[in-house]
């Protein structure tokens, strides 16, 4: 078991891609003070892929997700979902944020029911569906609590349940576990893998954690420092393993080293970039 280099933009992937990103670039500001966050970038994600994007901080990972989410417009190029250009947020793309995106004025069950209700499902039916999802993420007993009463890990479970409530075709995850402690993170990683296997959702996952990417992803994209481009792409098989301790195997460590080496030079470049800004 290992990771192997992989052409993300091969013709066979392009055709019928669930999500395609074509020559996408983004700059902030204008004139001499303009900062280019994303260099022209190409990606394609097929139905059922679990694609992790790893890169040094400030490489534009979140910008990429914001454009795919429809929250930001690209400077050039385009992002397509089922060959339709993305122009605004949509219910077929569920988003899970790092943290702080839950609605503190609503109980947990109302948070999860928010999506269906916003899409016209009657309140009681939406709540019933929300309760089922809460059960799935292990929060059945917390339906009537408020998000701020829950731990960070539980809040992220609510965030995942809320994103799943609309039954989206693709899940966009922006470092959802970055703020959690190691044990909670590993537990949730296993759970999200289980959810992915059961539901067969397409997932675009942004992270700075190489282990997380290796543990979860079917495809890993390594990005360069700003402006973010694709540095390398890999097909990974570790996520297929039933072994929850896969991360302790030598193959896993070797794969990790391979990506660490790719990223190290980029991280150094990112730091020198920050120093000059």
């Amino acid at each position: 078991m290992s990771i192997e280099p992989f052409d993300l933009n091969g013709r066979d992937r392009r055709n019928g891609a669930k999500l395609a990103v074509e020559h996408l670039s983004k700059s902030f500001g204008s004139g001499t003070s303009a900062v280019q966050a994303l260099a022209p970038l190409d990606l394609s994600v097929r139905t059922g892929d679990f694609l992790c994007v790893v890169g040094p901080s400030g490489c534009g990972k979140t910008t990429l997700l914001n454009i795919v989410g429809g929250f930001e417009r690209p400077t050039s190029g385009r992002a397509l979902i089922d060959d339709r250009p993305i122009t605004k947020p949509g219910r077929e793309r569920g988003v899970v944020f790092q943290q702080g995106a839950l609605f503190n004025w609503m109980s947990v069950v109302e948070n999860v029911a928010f999506g269906p209700r916003s899409c016209g499902v009657p309140a009681e039916k939406a709540r019933q569906h929300a309760r089922e999802l809460l059960e799935m993420v292990g929060l059945a007993g917390f339906a009537h609590r408020y998000p701020y009463e829950l731990s960070g890990g539980m809040q992220q479970r609510v965030g995942i349940a809320r994103a799943l409530a609309n039954d989206p075709e693709i899940l966009l995850m922006d470092e959802p576990f970055a703020a959690l402690d190691q044990q909670t993170r590993e537990l949730l990683q296993e759970e999200i893998r289980g959810i992915w296997r059961r539901t067969g959702k397409t997932i675009l996952w942004i992270t700075h954690s190489i282990e997380e990417a290796l543990f979860l992803a079917t495809h890993i994209v390594v990005m360069t420092a700003r402006p973010g481009r694709v540095k390398a792409a890999f097909r990974s098989r570790f996520s297929e393993s039933p072994d929850p301790l896969i991360a302790a195997t030598p193959e896993f460590t070797a794969a990790k080293r391979q990506i660490v080496e790719l990223l190290r030079s980029e991280s150094q470049r990112a730091q020198s970039l920050e120093a000059t800004v």
Binding site: G70, F71, G94, V95, G100, F103, S118
Partner: peptide
């Protein structure tokens, strides 16, 4: 983020205002 979360969940301008921005 909260506004974006609501939009991604399919909420229109009015719902975003009434159930997110106002509270």
């Amino acid at each position: 983020k909260k506004i974006q979360a609501a939009q991604a969940l399919g909420a229109g301008t009015l719902t975003v205002f009434r159930r997110v921005v106002l509270p």
